[in-house]
Design a protein around this nucleic acid. Structure first.
Length: 270
DNA sequence: TTAGCCCCGCCTGGTTCCAT
DNA sequence: ATGGAACCAGGCGGGGCTAA
């Protein structure tokens, strides 16, 4: 590994030996100079313009001229960058811990849990919540989180009418509604009942559609055909609105995860 | 008491993404 | 192209816990 810098002593340590020297150096006025390379630069904290090196002849620390690395960066700049980096990392850790603590407050009996167990518990809780939500929503027109088109025979139809129940669950986009109506009208279907509900940016439309039974033809066959065609037509509408160009940014992903600020992290943790 | 284990925070180098 | 910001993994030390 590379080197580390001790802000108290202003000493750079080679990570290969920090395991041995860190505590020693932080708690004592001595440094590992005698053991590490004689030319090991020992920069002062960022405020300093030069660093200390061991003069092998004098056997003491002397100020060294500011060094320039391969990229032409001055040592002071490198040290400043390191400090910024470690501070940024600290903020990142704080952000993660803050969210973990929010999770802890949301899930009961997790006070004493370590982080990994906490996350496992949260996963279980979310799964359980999803399961119970799905269970509770059965029979209600509550939009679920997956796109869905369902076309099925409707049993409570009026005599002499073919009835089908059409339900479409998708992202809440008002313009879809017009498309749905337009498509349904092309099948010579009459709307008996329409129910629409939205929740959390999702919408569910349920239509009960009817069509007169025509005598002297196989109405069961017609029924099946309409069901298939309506399903196909509605599915293509959903496809149209959920194409790649319509994906919201949060659904697209790259190999590298980036921070997405949905809301201020400070407000989410309190 | 102590060795061993586990968890955690910290630092750092490398990498990737993004704005300029 | 470049620099800054963020992410990630690896290593290290400290502290708490437990069994021997």
């Amino acid at each position: 590994m590379g080197s580390s810098f001790d802000w108290n002593s202003g000493i750079v340590f080679d990570n290969n030996i920090t395991g041995f020297f860190n505590g020693f150096a932080q708690n004592s006025p001595f440094s590992p100079l005698g053991i590490h390379s004689e030319s090991l630069p020992l920069p002062l904290p960022p405020s300093s313009s030069s660093s200390l090196v061991l003069d092998s002849e004098k056997g003491e620390l002397v100020r060294a001229p500011a060094k320039v690395d391969k990229k032409g960066k001055s040592e002071a700049k490198t040290i400043a960058a390191l400090k910024t980096h470690s501070e940024a990392e600290r903020r990142r850790r704080e952000r993660i811990n803050s969210h973990l603590s929010t999770l802890r407050s949301l899930v009961p009996f997790t006070d004493k849990m370590d982080k990994a167990s906490l996350l496992a518990e949260v996963i279980n809780n979310v799964k359980e919540l999803k399961r119970t939500t799905t269970e509770a929503c059965k029979g209600y027109a509550i939009p679920m989180d997956v796109n869905e088109v369902k076309v099925e025979p409707h049993k409570d139809g009026v005599q002499g009418l073919l009835c089908i129940k059409v339900s479409v669950c998708c992202e809440d986009r008002p313009e879809i509604f017009a498309d749905l109506r337009q498509v349904l009208e092309t099948f010579d279907l009459k709307t008996v009942k329409a129910e629409m509900s939205t929740l959390g940016g999702r919408m569910k439309n349920v239509f009960i559609m009817s069509r007169c039974i025509i005598e002297n033809i196989d109405n069961a066959e017609v029924h099946q055909q309409i069901t298939r065609s309506v399903h196909q037509a509605l599915t293509s509408i959903l496809d149209k609105y959920s194409g790649p160009e319509n994906l919201s940014p949060r659904l697209s992903h790259s190999d590298k995860r980036r921070r997405i600020s949905l809301f201020d992290s400070s407000s989410s943790s309190s």
